[in-house]
Computed example of a mutant assay.
Amino acid sequence: MYSDADAAALYDVLYPWNPETRAANRFYFDLVMAADSVLDVGCGTGAMLHRARDQGHQGRLVGLDPDRPSLDRARRRTGVEWIEGTAADAPSGADFALATMTGHAFQCLVTDHEVRSSLAAIHGALRPGGRFAFETRHPQARAWEKWNPANISDTVDASGRALRIWHQVESVVHDVVTFTETTAEPNGPVLRVDRAHLRFLAPDSLDAFLHEAGFEIETRLGAWDNTPVTPTSTEIITIATRN
């Protein structure tokens, strides 16, 4: 079997966090380094905050995530506060200058209640004028159509174990996509199957939730090269400001 701890370690192999080579990482890293206090919602294994502290960030850095194995990896780095919890558990009145939600984590908020309660908590964790930066996949790009067994990824995890990973969409109901991720040995047994749900909010629906929660849109981009949202954009990249 492939344990939850193994899966958390594999995430760092599949999605290495490097602002020098990945435009999305650079976008967030610049914001983090310019802010005197940062809450990273859905911080995962903590790579972004690790990097910020290693690069000399002197302010308060807090990572929030519900996945304990990921937080166990994050906690290998001292000098950062790590909190186990969902976005709705963001600390009220914490006076953060910046909150981030990277890696399309916002799409894990599937129900209206989850979106509203999460945005309300993030709003409450920011100081007046504080910024919330995040991205979601634009539904017009229909990214889920590429999540099928024909697109197999072969990799080697941190322990040197060869792995084969693929995805399979189970359903698309309104704006929620349900799919599985299968991890197996190449030409061998299946090690684990993880099931997930992601919500693909359109820009107008997303903005309605943000305005309801007390945010104003400061920046809206459709790609990591700083281009605006267009009819062919694959991303909805947002910086929203707390009123």
Rank of each mutant, 00 (worst) to 15 (best):
A52N: 08
T45R: 00
M101I: 01
A143P: 00
M48L: 15
T86Y: 10
G129Y: 09
A87I: 11
D95R: 15
A141D: 07
D89E: 14
A47F: 00
G93M: 05
G103F: 11
L64S: 01
V62D: 01
H104D: 15
S92Y: 06
A121M: 04
T100Q: 09
G63I: 06
F132C: 07
H57A: 08
K146Q: 14
G44R: 02
L98S: 03
K146D: 13
R75A: 12
R76G: 13
A99C: 09
R73M: 13
L71I: 08
G130R: 01
Q55Y: 06
F106W: 10
R142D: 11
G130N: 03
G59S: 14
Q140G: 07
L64P: 00
R68S: 13
M48D: 06
S117R: 11
A143Q: 11
S70T: 04
E145F: 08
T102Q: 11
E84K: 10
W144T: 08
E81F: 07
T136D: 04
D95V: 06
R60E: 13
S117M: 02
D89H: 12
P66G: 08
G56Y: 06
E145D: 12
S117H: 15
E81Y: 04
A88C: 02
V80F: 04
A52L: 07
S70C: 09
A90W: 02
R68D: 09
G129S: 08
A90G: 10
C43F: 02
L64V: 06
L126P: 01
H113A: 15
P66C: 05
R73D: 02
A97R: 10
R142T: 13
G59N: 11
A52E: 09
L49D: 04
V62N: 01
G56F: 11
A94C: 06
R142P: 02
D72V: 11
A74F: 07
W82Q: 00
F96S: 10
K146C: 01
F134A: 05
R68G: 05
T100I: 12
G79L: 13
H104P: 03
V62A: 07
M48P: 01
F106C: 03
Q58L: 15
P128I: 02
A90E: 09
R142V: 12
G59E: 09
A125D: 02
G44A: 10
R68Q: 12
H57T: 03
A143K: 13
R75Y: 04
D72I: 04
H50C: 07
C108M: 10
A52C: 10
G130M: 04
I83Q: 12
I83T: 02
E135S: 13
R75M: 15
H104Q: 08
A87N: 02
G46H: 10
L71S: 03
I83N: 04
T111P: 03
G79W: 11
G56S: 14
L98M: 12
Q107S: 14
R137T: 06
D112E: 12
R137A: 11
L64E: 00
H104A: 15
A120E: 15
G59H: 04
G44F: 04
D65Y: 01
E84G: 03
G130Q: 05
C108N: 13
S70K: 10
F132S: 05
F134N: 07
D65P: 05
R127E: 13
G46V: 00
D95N: 15
V115W: 02
T86C: 07
L64T: 00
